[in-house]
Design a protein around this nucleic acid. Sequence first.
DNA 1: TGACCGATGAAT
DNA 2: TTCATCGGTCAT
Length: 194
Amino acid sequence: MKLSRDFYERDTLVVAKELLGKYLVHVTPEATLMGKIVETEAYCGFEDAAAHSYKGLRSNRTEVMFGPGGYAYVYLIYGMYYCFNIVTSTLGNPEAVLIRALEPVSGIDVMKKNRKTEVLYNLCSGPGKLCAAMGITKLNNGEDLCGDKLFLLDNSLVPEENIMATPRINVDYAGEAKDYPWRFIIKGNKFVSR
DNA sequence: TGACCGATGAAT
DNA sequence: TTCATCGGTCAT
C-alpha cells in the first residue's frame, strides 16, 4: 500500500524514523527499481544550521522544501552526485528527510549496471550511490511521491529497540547542530553507509 | 556574471 | 585519512 500525503505531513523526526523499513520504488522504462530504506537523516527547517533551508533561506533550489509534504527534493552535491530527500511537514515548513541508504530489493541487475559494480552491499550504501542505482536525477526534483512513478510502499514499523540514532554525516560546518542525533539507521543492518 | 564550495565516494 | 572534482547556487 502506497504511503499517502498525511504520512509525510507530520513531525520530521517522527517521519525520519518511520521511513525506516519502507520501500522506495522507482518505475523506469528499463525496470521497476525497489529498495528498503535502512538509513535516514532529518533536516529541520529554520533553526537547523545543517539544513539548506536554515534561517528560512528560500531560493530556486530550496523552494520545494517550503511546499507540502510528500514531494521529492533532489539536489546535486560536489558537482557530481545527487541526493534524494523527501519533503516533510506542511506547507511553509521547509523540512525534509535525506535517504542515505537502501537495501536492494528488486531491479538489482539494473542497479548493478547503473553503479558499475557487482557488489550488493555497495549498490545503495550512501546518498549519491542510491540515486545512481535507482536512476534518480534532478529531473525527479519536485516530483509528487503520491504519484505512480516514484513513490513509497508501506511496511510494518521497525521496533524502537531496533533503531539507532547518531549525529548526521558531513555536517561539521553546522555549529552545535552538527551533534544533533538526527541520523537513524536500522540496528545491525549491513546495507547502511560507512 | 562569476567567485566560491559542498547533506560524497573511492582509494589508501 | 586523504583528495579529486565541477555544476550550481547565490549574491551582485
